[in-house]
Design a protein around this nucleic acid. Sequence first.
DNA 1: TTGTACGCGTTATCAG
DNA 2: CTGATAACGCGTACAA
Lengths: 332, 332
Amino acid sequence: MVTMEDVARLAGVSKMTVSNVVNNRGGVGDLVRQRVLEAIRESGYRVNVSARTLKSGRTGVIGLAVPEIDLPYFSHLADLVIDAAARRGYHVAIERTGAAETGEADALAHSRLLQFDGLILSAVALDGLDERLTEAGYPIVMLGERDFGGRFDHVSMPNEAGIKAATGHLADQGCRRIGIVSGPAREGVNVVTRRYHAYLDALTERGLAADPPLLFPLDRMTMEAGRAAAHRMVDSGHEVDGLVAVTDTIAIGVLRGLADRGLRVPDDVRLIGFDDVPEARFLVPSLSTVAPDHRWMAEKAVELVVQRVHAPSRPTGEYVAPFELVIRESTR
Amino acid sequence: MVTMEDVARLAGVSKMTVSNVVNNRGGVGDLVRQRVLEAIRESGYRVNVSARTLKSGRTGVIGLAVPEIDLPYFSHLADLVIDAAARRGYHVAIERTGAAETGEADALAHSRLLQFDGLILSAVALDGLDERLTEAGYPIVMLGERDFGGRFDHVSMPNEAGIKAATGHLADQGCRRIGIVSGPAREGVNVVTRRYHAYLDALTERGLAADPPLLFPLDRMTMEAGRAAAHRMVDSGHEVDGLVAVTDTIAIGVLRGLADRGLRVPDDVRLIGFDDVPEARFLVPSLSTVAPDHRWMAEKAVELVVQRVHAPSRPTGEYVAPFELVIRESTR
DNA sequence: TTGTACGCGTTATCAG
DNA sequence: CTGATAACGCGTACAA
């Protein structure tokens, strides 16, 4: 392995000078700088990140923990976070936590090993994890999901407002029996219960609330689960003319599930999702959805982590993303 | 920060003994081991990965380089690679190569890549990269795309066989004017030209080759590009009754593009993709596709990298994934 | 402007 | 079975 020492010898200077050149620090003569750069090229020298990290105590890496990366929403999010981090000179390491709670605890243990400078946690299920989180040793920002009562910075989806807007939009389109396809209920306040209550509120305000509620539950947040929910809904004879899916991923499955049963969107049932994943506009029919400003969220989360790296004791904050209602074919 | 030194002092032993306990090495008395473990718990000690890496020269991390992670194919691949690596005790760090190269100093460019014990490179479009790669200093496996003439291990898609099967299937379904939507042509042999030629061969064998060929080119490998290609195809008056899309991502765009022009799949045009991304079965119509065994590919790629970490000079090999033709609604 | 000496936390070697 | 010592490669005082 080529070290700084080698480069220094080759260029006829000291290690320190090489270090200064590599890090673009001043105090190096132009001629010397050229010689050093030449020596670097010739020798194929690369900085040793481990040594640098060991010395500085900073890794320059932000962890991004997501349940699954092959769900469209999370991969899209990852993309945006990488961009935002890059703009600040940070790299992003993606950790997959898996949907199960044990997986998330494990991932946290692993992320300790990886020594991030900070962690952005986008998680669905976090039971019993908050205890461990407080001793993680680096800043943590919760992104888009359950909040921990102000213990961490929290960048959240416009859950209430978004779902209310979506539900209201269905009503405006003439829907009278509006159902919701919603994720696995967990104890405590989380994104699922929040969205569910927002849905109920919107219906109540318009006098459309059904009793019993038209809730079609999911056991997982996958396309397959969405499809199964749609099947169950149709097979049990519910007559619904509008459906709110709590995420676009679910909506993709629902769309398919309705097609399986010969129901057409939007003719028989109108359908609206939440997230505006890249696929949404390409589906047939294209999917109406609540489009939170993901870029804003990614940007905010990274900004908060980076800030906290330098000022660990700043008080935590709550940040809700702006959103737009995107009307496409599925609710026309 | 709590160091081994601190733990050693607390337990009344030497650093070395603590190290032995932490790494489950033998040669430590049971009583001493207990004392050390207790001291670790009490102090909240965590191994410092940077120091370990600096010393050992191994990181336990495999890099996975992909152009974009929010394309369904790559995020799915990432998922499988993470699984395969985890089974062998390795972590995976995803690197996105799609972004334009910044003007970093040579020594810093790719320095992040140096933290890897090995690299799995998927579909990289960085020109002149192969020069640098040979001096990367760690094993590299090419996955699924461009091959570098036997310089690296290469796990490839069943490009020829898969596209031939797909094209043949369209012919079997009665298609007579079969087109292909294919990616940006690059110099040299790559996945795109390979698939294109396989398509031509299949047509020639059946006497269906058109002159001029029904090639609808893409400038990028995105859904949007697929949609645009479909628009151009229809608008230019081509009468095509079967379409091969070189990837499912493209196919999703094409599906939408055809719908935009009022063409129905499969009634007016049959469409088949390549990859079998998770979404494929949920589209309406569900998408017929060539389904390479991605799990096999991920497994193989990881296996090869890990092998080569321990035996760097083993001769390189070429490995072609098995595949299945998955017939769904889009070609019925 | 350049060079020297030392420390970062861990592990390998070798002696006890 | 345990402990002392010397690296690993880089960055930072501080000296020249």
